[in-house]
Design a protein around this nucleic acid. Structure first.
Lengths: 227, 227
DNA sequence: CGACGGCTTGATCCGAGTCAATCCTGGTGG
DNA sequence: CCACCAGGATTGACTCGGATCAAGCCGTCG
């Protein structure tokens, strides 16, 4: 989802409440209290499609990709989850897609049954659970527009703007994911992603000091591509 | 979403409870009691993107499309909603996408604020609200895979199988939507949709007695295209 | 009966995919 | 500290699936 919003909520929660005063009255707080923090190494599976959904997850550090694959191996990444993001919120009994660590990541894990019981008692938690799912849905809607109707240049520009977050001149983006991940997220091939980045550099919209680092030189020209 | 599941829940609810005994303990029941049924004519907007989200909606009869458009008019339909389906469930204050009636439709409308208040009191309602949103998210995930990674023939086959619902030999599909709607749902052009249908007919997977009616002759050959 | 809108069909084009070399570059071991 | 190596990234040549442009067709409704 590339959602920075949840991250700030989590950070704020930690800032306001010293550890001993963390409350279960918020989703982030509930994760703090009930969740074990587990470390996953790069490219390790967190859960697989159709596995029973036993836990809910929150990224503490690192990055996670959620995706589906066709039987012949074609992969579509639905979202990247960054620190603070909650994922794996299944209402049904089984996961609808798989999740893997993009980089070495720390993930807080909370029992689904416990969280649901908590939500049944506390309507505030229930509301946050719902809101978080609705936020994911909104991201998915936006992404369907990209996948169904945008060309390669527009897709890459949208991705860069989402990764860049709030405006800031000469912003440096540190990409946690490979070109293959970006391609599978944008519904393109690595070659097209690479060519498009090179092309954007030629137009001096961005700079590419290294393959995992991108400098946004002209946010405006990226935005123009977003229609 | 082409979700037949919710439809059956609604139908069951009506079957079990005579009107006077309808309970607010279920989402469908809450819609029954609190929702006004409104008629929308073909192609009429139900709500627009970025409008304040004042209501939740449930299809009683007809069909609804939810979609986003780019500034130059390119349109992506995220889901079709059939009788029983709930849509427009926004956790935020504004709608993230637009909704229009595909055909003349009756829509039950319930005040968002009332429904949220009800969910705060009744955790069962809260759970259903969340489950309904999660179901939409799952549909969106599936659709991202289609839009990002399937070819034209696979897209059309997936669509036909989703519209056909549970197996049944020589099943006749009555399409409520135009070729343009199908194209905008599948991320294709009308020409490609039309050609692909003709091609599937040539392979005797389907028959096309009229443009809004499709007979599934070989579910197996459609499924083979689904990978 | 004619006209209009939605659908189909055909011809051609083009953007992204495929296939095939390189080219880094970051990590390793000497 | 430097040379080497492997895997990811870039670049190029060519192909191809679906878009575009352009007629017709057909069913419906006045």
């Amino acid at each position: 989802m590339l959602n920075h919003h949840v991250a700030t909520v989590a950070a704020r929660t930690e800032a306001i409440f010293p550890p001993s005063a963390i409350s279960e009255r918020t989703l982030a707080g509930a994760f703090e209290l009930r969740g074990a923090a587990i470390h996953f190494e790069r490219n390790v599976e967190i859960y697989g499609e159709d596995e029973p959904a036993e836990y809910f997850y929150q990224v503490v550090s690192g990055a996670v990709r959620t995706y589906k694959v066709l039987s012949d191996g074609r992969r579509q990444i639905g979202a990247f989850h960054l620190p603070g993001d909650v994922f794996g919120l299944e209402a049904g009994a089984a996961h609808g897609f798989s999740a893997e660590a993009v980089t070495d990541s720390t993930i807080r894990v909370a029992k689904r049954s416990g969280m649901i019981a908590l939500a049944a008692r506390d309507s505030g938690i229930a509301a946050e659970l719902w809101a978080s799912t609705a936020r994911s849905l909104r991201g998915a809607q936006e992404h369907m527009l990209l996948l169904g109707r945008k060309n390669a240049e527009e897709r890459v520009a949208s991705f860069l703007l989402a990764m860049a977050g709030p405006a800031c001149p000469d912003q440096v983006i540190e990409l946690p994911m490979s070109r293959q991940d970006i391609a599978d997220y944008l519904g393109l091939t690595i070659e097209t992603v690479s060519r498009t980045l090179t092309h954007l550099e030629a137009k001096s919209a961005i700079e590419l000091p290294s393959s995992r680092r991108i400098v946004v030189k002209s946010r405006a020209s990226l935005q123009r591509l977003n229609a």
